[in-house]
Structure formats: C-alpha cells, structure tokens
C-alpha cells in the first residue's frame, strides 16, 4: 500500500513509501504494521494528532482500507 507522509513525519522514512500489509485492513492496522516494521515510527504514529487522509478526506482510525488505497499521514499542522 502506498503511504505518503507530510510535515515532520517525512524526516523519518522519506516522503513516500510502499508498505506490505494484508488487506482489507483499517488505518489503525496500517499504523500498527508500520510500527512493527519501523519501530522509530512508534512515537510519531502513536500521536493522536497525526491524522490519516484517504482520497483527500481526513478519516478516523477505523476507516477501512483496501489494497488500492493511497494513505497520507499528516503531522500536526504549523498554521500559516
């Protein structure tokens, strides 16, 4: 599944990456899978302020994902 990071999250693993995860799953399962693979993501991805976005809409952690979804994770915004 293709994952894109915005803001300071992109400092850790780069802006885009491909995550091997069994689908269908949820945003929460994707977070857990990434933390298993990259333990350094535990703190940033565990931050409740880090929101997921699918199809240009913010989605909750129980949002269902299939293999074709692109998922974005947004660091807390800086404002203008």
């Amino acid at each position: 599944m293709r994952v894109t990071f915005h803001g300071r999250l992109a400092d850790l693993l780069g802006r885009d990456l491909e995550v091997a995860v069994d689908t269908p799953c949820t945003v929460a399962a994707l977070r857990s899978r990434m933390i298993e693979t990259w333990p350094q993501m535990a703190q940033p991805l565990g931050d409740r302020r880090v929101r997921a976005c699918v199809g240009n809409k913010l989605v909750p952690d129980d949002h269902p994902l299939d293999g074709t979804d692109d998922v974005e994770f947004l660091a807390p915004v800086s404002g203008g």
Binding site: H6, V77, G79
Partner: peptide
Amino acid sequence: LKTEAVFW
C-alpha cells in the same frame, strides 16, 4: 490562519 491553515 495561524493555527488551522494546513501548512508544515
């Protein structure tokens, strides 16, 4: 804008 605009 200072708190909610979506910028990093």
